[in-house]
């Protein structure tokens, strides 16, 4: 790898710019492929670029046979994101654990006494009302959304925007009873059964969690499960 290729990869990662590195693994030629352009020896090879762009959409690194050559396509997408509604106690360990697991975490809560840097050191805070905050952050298929306020006034607007997005995971804190009431409200708001079924509630895997940190573990475990099972299913198709 050329030093300037490495520097460019690092620069792109810092700027959260998606890029794929196409390497001819027999001779070492390397081309950087972006959404609209490419730089390197294969910058005019349409087939490689097409495959690399699809790999970026699929978030998948793989070796391909292209024109009799073995090309390894390595995808460098920006980090996965986790948007947490509610700067509550559980959000404190969850935001930290998710950061360690590689997520770019934002906690959304308009209540200034909850969403403080003292409670969330190093975590991005968004003080908008959850629907506005969520809309601004524009969740995509590489985003997980977790609502934790336990207050329909705050959780519901966030969930409604989440349900209209491609977020790969939507989880909502609350008991079965709380969720049943939530389902009624969302149905009344015009969401279909299939749409509402995207919500994981009660949130997290059932592992007997008691403390906020343990609940955070169960949530992060479920997010991980959904992320990789989804990818595996897509791989089989």
């Amino acid at each position: 790898m050329k030093q300037h290729t490495l520097s460019q990869l690092i620069k792109d990662q810092n700027e959260k710019k998606a890029v794929a590195l196409a390497t001819d693994i027999d001779i070492g030629l390397q081309t950087l492929v972006y959404d609209n352009t490419a730089i390197g020896p294969d910058e005019n090879n349409e087939e490689i670029q097409q495959i690399a762009r699809q790999a970026m959409r699929d978030d998948r690194c793989k070796i391909y046979e292209i024109g009799g050559r073995r090309i390894f396509i390595e995808v460098f997408n920006p980090s996965l994101r986790m948007l947490i509604v509610g700067a509550v106690h559980i959000a404190q360990p969850l935001s930290r654990m998710a950061s360690v697991a590689g997520y770019d975490v934002t906690v959304i809560d308009p209540r200034a006494s909850f969403a403080t840097d003292e409670r969330f050191p190093g975590i991005t805070l968004n003080g908008e009302w959850p629907d506005d905050g969520m809309r601004d952050l524009d969740p995509d298929r590489r985003t997980a959304i977790v609502t934790l306020t336990h207050d329909p006034k705050l959780d519901d607007p966030g969930i409604e925007v989440a349900l209209k997005s491609d977020a790969f995971y939507i989880g909502a804190l609350g008991s079965r009873k709380t969720h049943a009431a939530r389902v009624e409200r969302l149905t009344a708001a015009g969401f279909s059964e299939t749409e509402i079924a995207r919500i994981h509630a009660p949130v997290g895997l059932s592992i007997g969690s008691v403390s906020p940190a343990e609940i955070a573990v169960s949530i992060l475990a479920q997010v991980t499960d959904v992320l990789h099972r989804k990818a595996d299913t897509e791989a089989i198709v």
Binding site: L6, I10, Q13, R60, C61, F76, N77, G102, H228, A231
Partner: peptide, 15 residues
């Protein structure tokens, strides 16, 4: 096969 690139940001420190 777990060819999922989701954890790549973890390798930032390597690069």
């Amino acid at each position: 096969d777990r060819n999922v690139a989701s954890g790549l940001s973890q390798d930032d420190d390597v690069m």
